[in-house]
Design a protein around this nucleic acid. Structure first.
Lengths: 196, 196
DNA sequence: CTCAAAAACTAACATTTGTAAGTATGTAGC
DNA sequence: GCTACATACTTACAAATGTTAGTTTTTGAG
């Protein structure tokens, strides 16, 4: 009888969730079946239900975990004593690093959250909007202080956050530059684009 | 008996394709059912098959149409006599405008092409890669001529193209700035970020 | 070794899916 | 009005899906 491999640190539920993230990223939430997922962890589909409640719970857990990480981080940034540009740069760098180290989950949270069920869908949506407002507000402060060009803040947010999701292509790229170089390049282009 | 509304210029197949684009954008290709689509055009699901061959043909048509538009445009740009920065700006502006005027189809082509079937999937994938190479090559020329900062060109491409897909948020935004302002802001941030 | 708990299995289910076959209805030219 | 064609409808089906129920196997503590 096949068993889901675990270590002391990582529960079977976590193993399943990790595999789900990879699968959801590759095929999309809807196209990924529980039988696919079961095969990935080396077990029959029904066996998964000894560890999880439902498919949608998997997506939910992924999205919540990612959302909380970003939520926590932006609060730290808000309380920092530094310039607006520096704050934006810190946020950007965090997004880049998360997208590199935590790829599958961040990707899934970003592209598949539409398939969350209520009330989690509304919660997620709201938190996402709030997050963007926070970033926009930091940018606006920077504009007022003359550090940042007089641009439309929501547009800047949109550019920065979506640009990061392009790291997807970097992951798939054969001859890739290092993660550090990638980060440096992205910061150069985007932060210089903002700076006055 | 309900009938699909048409004008002289637009065939029933086109009506269905437009509705499909909207539906695929909202729910995702996999989650959008033919019964959903049928309801949208005011007809029974099976009736759609008098006009189309299959669900996947709809996605295929959408993706091909969008891909061809961009493909054609970049060839025009390549043959233009102007600086590299101007070429990149032209490409960026085209992307922005397409994302604004041709929203649903461009969005679907961008996010749902993974669900294309072979051999169309491979073709699309290849063309997409070639397209990005072309843009990267334009940027590299600009770097050599000293118009553009010495950055990693593929990274710049990734940023620009993905930033545009953020226009999605702009469409959903309640109190949006005008399309012209949006374009101006995006060009300011991104092109200034590239320029030396 | 024993035994309870954990984790796997098999079998089955109700739905939903894309689509085919056959039939009815609407429409346009004669 | 008649005919032919386009377009719709009804019915049906096979495959795939998420999930439950019930059973067997494995594991680890005493």
């Amino acid at each position: 009888m096949a068993r889901i491999k675990t270590t002391q640190d990582i529960s079977r539920k976590e193993v399943i969730t990790e595999a789900a993230a990879t699968l959801f990223k590759e095929k999309g939430y809807k196209a990924a079946s529980m039988r696919d997922l079961a095969e990935q962890v080396g077990v029959e589909a029904a066996s998964l239900y000894n560890h999880i409640k439902s498919k949608s719970e998997l997506l939910h857990n992924i999205c919540v975990q990612v959302a909380n990480d970003f939520w926590e981080h932006i609060h730290e940034v808000e309380n920092k004593k530094c310039t607006g540009v520096e704050k934006v740069e810190a946020i950007l760098r965090y997004h880049i690093r998360e997208m590199i180290t935590n790829y599958e989950k961040v990707y899934v949270s970003d592209r598949e959250w539409k398939h969350l069920t209520e009330p989690y869908l509304s919660n997620f949506h709201t938190q996402r909007r709030e997050y963007r407002k926070k970033v926009a507000s930091i940018i606006e402060q920077g504009i007022h202080k003359g550090e940042i060009k007089p641009i439309d803040a929501p547009t800047a947010v949109l550019i920065i956050l979506h640009a990061v999701s392009g790291i997807d292509s970097w992951h798939r790229s054969k001859q890739k530059i290092s993660a550090a170089e990638l980060e440096a390049n992205m910061v150069t282009i985007l932060i210089d684009g903002l700076r006055k």
